[in-house]
Design a protein around this nucleic acid. Structure first.
Length: 486
RNA sequence: GCCGCCGUAGCUCAGUUGGCAGAGCAGCGGACUUUUAAUCCGAGGGUCGCAGGUUCGAAUCCUGCCGGCGGCACCA
């Protein structure tokens, strides 16, 4: 290979040269296995009490990525990183022999290796493994990120998450926390009598949320499918079927803008419970979040312990703006009241959109402590049951933490005739150009006509919950591969 | 979609008023037996996001485009 034009190619060529010479020396650079490895954290735990300078004859087998190298010649130190942590290795020529020493020090940062050796604590107090033997487990053909500053470029961290994970321990820890959140949520619901189900991701008709869908095409059936925007309607059909307590944890897809709280595909947990109402669901929601946070090792400033704050939406708007949405039941009256107080009135907004404007601008930002905002106008909520004491409202809540919505729940509408009327209203909205109106779902109506018990249900945004638990401000930090432009 | 900020070596970052594109780490050659971001010596490594423009001369100024971040709009 001739001289390379740029530094990158030169670095790659150097590593490929080493790969070649390893093979020529009879070393397999990509062996098939390395059995019996302990996590680095376990080795650390086993030798916590070692004094500085104290040696042991306890041998360990470790495997991981070579992350740093100090010293040359007859003695050197290297750092090995696995998922659980980092440990120092000591390479000595009197242990490995001149040839072994040269081979070990000839490895590149980023190479994956396995080592056997005895643990000791260095004079400086660092737990160290004295390498007795080592094996190359996989040759790395590209340079790793910088060893001290790590990888900080946000774009590279998201586009090449593998580099973020290998360079930044916080990134590894975050996604381990995320995994704990998800497994704890399953454990919680399993223990309370829920069964996990899987409903279609590819749907002939979408529904269950106000959002525009992605569409795709099935070749053999020669028809369009939608990627689901929610699991709601299928899960309620399972309640009709008698499964009584069901949950689904998986991806929803919404064809809308990307910002710090929205990714086009995101993880939603929905659960539905027969014979429950939205108060029961609120209680279960706050217990679930508190449990999950504890299981994930949450230690943030926001107190997630139940009971959370409860406010009604009309009262919350009244408190923050002085506007009683119940007394301004038509669009122009509400717009007038808002204008009279000097509030922004988007000229094309409908009444529900104005309520949403008041909510998002004047109420949401104040909800930093965990809060259930209860009782929404019926026009905003086509699947929620009418409030038992106020016919203009539905029994619905949204849960807010840190000024961000993390859950949406209601006492489910189970009167098929009223559901039909709600769909007809949605059809009228769609006819008027509302891209997010609910499509008319006859199969769902037939299911309700079969008889659905009184039911409470909820959707919890797992990505946002992970943001709360890990203290991150952007959903892209808690999604492994967030959506990016080409 | 609109506005603002940003994009320089594999990585982390400097780069003055428009005047030969730099450092650290990594890599390469060499020295070194206890380091903790090891140290020392030496030689390399660049489409300054891309494309135009202004200028004797552009990383630097202007325009457009691409990408990222933030805000607005949209949106749970």
């Amino acid at each position: 290979m001739s001289e390379e034009a740029d530094g990158s190619a030169e670095l790659l060529a150097t590593r490929r040269r080493k790969l070649r010479s390893l093979r020529e020396a009879g070393v397999e650079p990509f062996p098939h296995e390395f059995d019996g490895v302990e996590p680095i954290a376990a080795v650390r735990a086993a030798h916590e009490s070692l004094r500085d300078g104290e040696e042991t004859d306890v041998r360990h087998r470790l495997a991981g990525r070579l992350a740093a190298r100090r010293g040359q010649g007859k003695m050197a130190f290297l750092d090995l990183v696995d998922r659980s942590g980092r440990i120092q290795l000591q390479a000595r020529v009197d242990e490995l022999g001149p040839e072994g020493m040269e081979q070990l020090l000839g490895l590149d940062l980023g190479d994956l290796i396995g080592v056997d050796g005895a643990a000791f604590r260095s004079k400086r107090g660092e737990l160290t493994l004295r390498v007795e033997s080592f094996t190359l487990l996989a040759k790395s053909l590209r340079p790793p990120p910088e060893k001290h500053h790590g990888l900080t470029d946000v774009e590279t961290r998201f586009r090449r998450r593998e580099l973020d994970l290998m360079a930044n321990e916080e990134a590894r820890e975050l996604f381990i926390v995320r995994a704990r959140v998800i497994s704890a949520a399953r454990r919680f619901l399993d223990a309370e009598g829920f069964i996990e189900v899987e409903t279609p991701v590819l749907q002939p008709l979408y529904g269950g949320a106000a959002a525009r869908p992605f569409t795709t095409h099935h070749n053999a059936l020669n028809r369009e499918f939608y990627l689901r925007i929610a699991t709601e309607l299928y899960l309620k059909r399972l309640i009709v079927g008698g499964l009584e307590r069901v949950y689904e944890l998986g991806k929803d897809f919404r064809n809308e803008g990307v910002d710090s709280t929205h990714n086009p595909e995101f993880t939603m947990l929905e659960f539905y419970e027969a014979y429950a109402d939205y108060e029961d669901i609120a209680a279960r929601c706050e217990r679930l979040v508190a449990y999950v946070a504890a299981e994930a090792g949450y230690s943030g400033e926001i107190d997630l312990t139940p009971p959370w704050e409860r406010e009604t939406l009309p009262q919350a708007i009244l408190d923050r703006t002085g506007i009683d949405i119940g007394e301004h039941a038509d669009r122009d009256a509400l717009a007038g009241a808002m204008a009279a107080r000097g509030l922004n009135v988007p000229p094309k907004d409908t009444w529900p959109q104005l309520v949403d404007e008041l909510l998002s601008k004047h109420v949401e930002p104040t909800l930093s402590e965990p809060t259930f905002l209860m009782d929404y106008p019926v026009a905003l909520s086509p699947f929620a049951k009418r409030h038992r004491s106020n016919p203009d409202l539905v029994e619905r809540f949204e849960a807010y933490v840190g000024g961000m919505e993390i859950a949406n729940a209601f006492t489910e509408l189970n009167d098929p005739d009223e559901q039909r009327r709600r769909f007809e209203e949605q059809r009228a909205l769609a006819g008027a150009g509302d891209m997010e109106a609910q499509p008319f779902d006859e199969a769902f109506l037939e299911a309700l006509e079969q008889g659905m018990p009184p039911t409470g249900g909820i959707g919890i945004g797992i990505d946002r919950l992970v943001m709360v638990i890990t203290g991150r401000q952007s959903i892209r930090e808690v999604v492994l591969f967030p959506a990016m432009r080409d």
